[in-house]
Nucleic acid binder design. Structure first.
Lengths: 84, 84
DNA sequence: GTGTATTTGTTCGTATGTATC
DNA sequence: CGATACATACGAACAAATACA
């Protein structure tokens, strides 16, 4: 599992889902999670962050909409763009 | 309130939020809801469609991300782009 | 092939906060 | 202040796709 510690500050004015999305984005753009490598699973992120499933899902959705990750149902979510 | 009947087919393979997003999008692009005119409120859409608040919000979020609508906190959601 | 576990997708319900009128 | 409207977050349930023993 590739990924540094994730820290969510509940009292920050920045929404939790945005904090998580930002940290995941950084992990991807920095190459810490190379293209085609799986992101941490939703369940893992729930345990790691203490956030609710829906909140984590929302954060991941941000990356997907941003074209930084893609999902394969039943498999997982991967860094980079879907394709060949 | 500008807007034709909204119909959600629960048994359709197309997710409810996408059905709603599509119908709202059509209402905007067709000019049925002109730029700067308010979209139906979340609560209204909840009553009209029978969907849950979160599901309706998700549909509206699709339009906002697509640049077809913008939100003014405490006021409402409007067709077109935010700006002047 | 079957059954189970994992993972994502959709949906609902509810509570609290913030902004506007 | 009270009503309205959007924003964030939590909790829970069920379906579908995939992986694996």
């Amino acid at each position: 599992m590739i990924m540094e510690r994730i820290v969510i500050n509940t009292h920050s004015p920045e929404p939790s889902y945005q904090q998580l999305a930002r940290q995941l984005r950084d992990a991807i753009t920095s190459g810490q999670i190379p293209p085609r490598e799986p992101l941490p699973s939703i369940q893992y992120l729930v345990g790691e962050t203490g956030l609710a499933v829906n909140t984590v899902r929302r954060a991941v959705a941000v990356l997907i909409e941003g074209g930084l990750a893609y999902t394969v149902p039943g498999r997982g979510t991967y860094a980079g763009k879907a394709g060949t």
